[in-house]
Amino acid sequence: MIKTDQFRKKLKVELDGDPYMMVDVDFVRPGKGQGFVRTKLKHMITGSVVERTFKSGEAVKPAEVRDEEMQFLYENGGEYTFMDNKTYEQVTMNTDQLGDTVNYIYEGINATISFFNDLPIGCEIANFVELEIVECEPGIKGNTATNTMKPAVVSTGYRVNVPLFVNQGEWIRIDTRTGDYSERCKRPEGR
């Protein structure tokens, strides 16, 4: 059990059977009375944020969350299958569980899957991914301006705005934290 004086940001706790991550922690003592600890907690599956105030000294259960390095294998009807590189164990996650990550994952990409009570609840990938442009208007040669953008579709089906000089069949790097185009790049080896 974790007592309130050990509360800190990013602590993973279990409340009412659900895993939460602390995003804000503050001590408060109204008047000269007993102390309380105010927290903001983010539900690790739904992402919703709740506020909870605990009495000082109260204890909560740590959330048993483990992370595993896995590889994305394939998608089938909205179900995404990952495989543990060491044990060859496979898990399936749906688009709701993956959130924005579905926009960037391609066969063979490495991902960190978090498990709560052996159920997959989250998927983290690198901050940048390289993807091929499969659809966009022809590039305008010599126009190196980066502030004028045009729509494009990458191999995962994700739509992203790219600068005018980028062509179909070229590869770009996307920032997975913002979903934005980052830069043009070479086709990564082996892809």
Partner: peptide
């Protein structure tokens, strides 16, 4: 808002006060 069955009146008061009034 969760609370313990043995929380006294003042604790319950503060849980309400801190969350919804202050």
């Amino acid at each position: 808002i969760p609370h313990a069955t043995d929380d006294d009146w003042d604790t319950l008061y503060f849980l309400l006060f801190l969350n919804f009034i202050e």
